[in-house]
Amino acid sequence: MALSVAFVLFPNLTQLDLTAPAQVLSRIPDATVRYVAKTEEPVPTDCGFSILPTETFANAAKCDLLCVPGGPGVAAALKDASTVEFVDRLSRHARYVASVCTGAFLIGATGALDGKHATTHWAYRHLLPRVGAKPTPGRVVRDRNLFTGGGVTAGLDFALTIAAEVAGEDVARLVGTAIEYAPEPPFGSCDYEAQPLPVRSTLDSRYAKSVGRIADALDALQLR
């Protein structure tokens, strides 16, 4: 089955939130992947390089799967009416809607997560009720046609889940094996809860400002 995928681009997105699932989804037979931004200008990522859009919000066609990445730029994107309106417009007609990391808040800003189970990066999960969602731990959380992924690398899990959904588990296994997705961290699990207290304390302090920025952006939306 042909699958049309559209990724939403905004300044200072986390590139792996986008490029990891794009690598998987682009390998599904008969899939097409598009990258949609406010303008045709290159969109800067959080890693110092930019991504060139293939379409703009104004001329983007409908899609089967809308995928929204997260990143440092989410707070600003939440305050940009054209970005939120675009996510709302395409998500209403998409067969599937998905987010990685804090991209969940851009979906939530449209009201699409109201009463739904959802996840995001561990540092921001407690903010999900602000967009009406029910925080649910997990690498990938599905509620009907909505797929939300945890932080950054969870985009691979979400994309392989979608691959199995639309093309069958055999195809998903082929893609996963082709990209050699067999994580073995050299120092054990990188799950937040598995880390010693000093590591968690350092992480909490590093994310505090970013969490505050998203909380402030959600306040401005007056969703909750």
Rank of each mutant, 00 (worst) to 15 (best):
G71D: 06
P72H: 13
L221I: 00
R130F: 11
P183F: 09
P44A: 08
A164N: 10
P183N: 10
I214D: 00
A20R: 02
A133W: 01
T19W: 04
V166F: 00
C47K: 13
Y35L: 13
T39R: 09
A123W: 10
V140M: 06
A133F: 01
L52P: 00
T177W: 11
L160D: 01
F57D: 02
C63D: 04
R34Y: 05
A220N: 13
T120S: 12
P135N: 07
V33L: 06
V5Y: 05
N12C: 04
F57V: 05
Y207F: 14
L127A: 06
G48H: 08
D191W: 10
G70M: 07
R224P: 11
C67M: 12
F105A: 01
A31H: 06
K62Y: 07
G150I: 02
L16A: 12
P29N: 10
I214T: 08
A133G: 03
V152M: 10
R130K: 15
P137A: 14
E40S: 12
R95C: 10
N145G: 11
P186R: 13
D191H: 14
S50Q: 02
E40L: 13
C101N: 03
Y207K: 06
P185Y: 12
E180D: 15
V175E: 01
A20Q: 08
F49R: 14
A58Q: 14
A215F: 07
Y96Q: 09
K116T: 04
D204P: 00
T14F: 13
L106A: 03
A163F: 07
T19M: 09
D17H: 12
A164Q: 13
A217H: 01
P198G: 13
A163N: 10
R144A: 15
S4H: 10
L78Y: 01
T32K: 02
K209E: 15
E165W: 10
T32I: 03
A81C: 00
V43P: 02
A159L: 00
G188H: 14
L25P: 02
D191K: 14
A81T: 12
R224Y: 08
L66Q: 09
V36K: 03
D219W: 08
Y35M: 09
A167N: 04
I107V: 12
F49C: 10
G176T: 09
P135G: 03
G111M: 08
W122Q: 12
V84T: 11
C47W: 11
Q222E: 15
R144H: 15
R92W: 00
F49L: 12
V68F: 02
A81N: 11
I51M: 11
C63N: 07
K62M: 11
L3A: 07
D17K: 00
V97K: 02
A61C: 06
K134W: 03
L197G: 00
V131A: 05
V199N: 13
S205C: 11
G48K: 07
K79G: 02
K79S: 06
R125G: 04
